[in-house]
């Protein structure tokens, strides 16, 4: 399993290196392209700032009111049985529905437990391997006016479930539960 963590440290420098070499090979104007792309990135982040404000406040209210703790206690009997961290249930479900709302919940967990805690690592891995199923499906199918989606939802949910289970197993293997 150590090799997986080594890979984590290599992939960003390697990607940057390969892209730059490839860019030289194709005679791309490297620095101009970089600056232009970086500008795009800045406006993207500035564009999502209002969303982040709105959702962090909403999740913050849920947290401060004690509603998230109540939900955690409600699902505890089931999650204890499965060995699933109960604090992450709201995030796991929200992940399927809304990308920005799940980001709000993710940040809340980072704040509560820290990104390097067992829970923090588990949700980081889980967020990397799942997608907003319902939203994506409706955008793509609506664009071509398809109403009968057959087994798309079932397949996507199976993929997501496998991702969540794999994340939990990998987190348990790499970092013993606290």
């Amino acid at each position: 399993m150590k090799i997986i963590l080594m890979f984590s440290n290599l992939i960003i420098p390697m990607t940057i290196g390969i892209v730059i070499l490839y860019g030289y090979g194709r005679k791309v104007d490297l620095y101009d392209s970089f600056v232009e792309g970086a500008k795009d990135g800045m406006s993207t982040v500035a564009g999502i700032l209002p969303t982040i404000v709105g959702l962090m406040v909403a999740v913050g209210i849920l947290r401060a009111s004690g509603a998230l703790d109540i939900l955690g206690r409600l699902v505890a009997p089931l999650t204890n049985l499965l060995g699933y961290p109960k604090e992450t249930v709201p995030l796991t479900l929200m992940r399927l529905v809304s990308s920005s709302a799940s980001t709000g919940l993710l940040l809340d967990l980072f704040k509560q437990f820290g990104p390097d805690s067992y829970i923090g690592r588990f949700v980081s891995i889980m967020m990397s391997c799942t997608e907003t199923v319902f939203y994506t499906m409706s955008v793509y199918f609506m664009s071509v006016k398809i109403t009968k989606t057959r087994y798309t939802l079932a397949g996507a949910l199976i993929a997501n479930l496998a991702g969540v289970a794999a994340s939990l197993a990998i987190t348990n293997l790499l970092y013993a539960p606290a």
Binding site: L5, M6, I125, M126, C129, G163, T171
Partner: peptide
């Protein structure tokens, strides 16, 4: 978490 995330 990049490596573990990729594996998942």
């Amino acid at each position: 978490i990049i490596g573990p995330g990729l594996l998942a």
